[in-house]
């Protein structure tokens, strides 16, 4: 699903994608830079929230700095016929932050279900991985977990002006 963005929406996105200004009237500050009014910027942002173009407005926590450093990408090769039901079940777990069905890339990559598991330690992540394995049961043919060892980049979406 997509929504139409005009050139003013795009300017607002470019102006805010790195963050909101930390000033008392941030939307007005953005408006001034773009030759708009604060009301225009707020109305357009509201519309983008409604259309799902803005997923949310808030803080993006840095899991590493918060000590939730054992971010493990658990990956599973499950029967295609059951993958969607199982994916929904994993997505509902409170320790799974993202869950996706993706294509396999044999022979290097046999897994089709990806569930990102967060914990304070690898031990905790392994416990949670065991919970997932139990939930998936006999549908699992192979699985693995990839731990992140370093953030190489984290800027988020950037569009061109």
């Amino acid at each position: 699903m997509t929504a139409e963005l005009d050139h003013i929406d795009r300017k607002i996105i470019v102006e805010t994608q790195a963050g909101l200004p930390l000033v008392a009237r941030p939307y007005e500050a953005i408006a001034e830079r773009l030759g708009l009014t604060g009301g225009d910027v707020m109305a357009r942002l509201r519309r983008m929230v409604e259309a799902g173009i803005v997923r949310r407005i808030g803080v993006v926590p840095n899991h590493y700095a918060l000590g939730l450093s054992a971010n493990g990408m658990s990956v599973w090769d499950v029967d295609d016929a059951r993958a969607r039901d199982l994916g929904r079940a994993l997505g509902a777990l409170d320790f799974v932050s993202h869950c996706y069905l993706r294509p396999r890339r044999p022979p290097v990559w046999p897994y089709n279900l990806f569930a990102m598991v967060h914990g304070a330690s690898r031990e905790e992540v392994e416990e949670k991985r065991a919970v997932i394995a139990g939930l998936l049961g006999t549908a699992v043919r192979a699985h693995d977990i990839l731990y992140s060892t370093r953030i190489l980049k984290k800027t988020g979406l950037r569009i061109a002006a």
């Binding site: 790195a18 983008m48 173009i53 803005v54 997923r55 949310r56 926590p61 700095a65 988020g156």
Partner: peptide, 24 residues
């Protein structure tokens, strides 16, 4: 506080999170 949390990299960003899917 938000400025300090960003400075300390406890939060990596503060603002709108855009959804590229919905932009086509």
């Amino acid at each position: 506080r938000l400025a300090r949390l960003k400075e300390q990299e406890v939060i990596s960003r503060f603002g709108p999170m855009y959804n590229a899917d919905r932009m086509g």
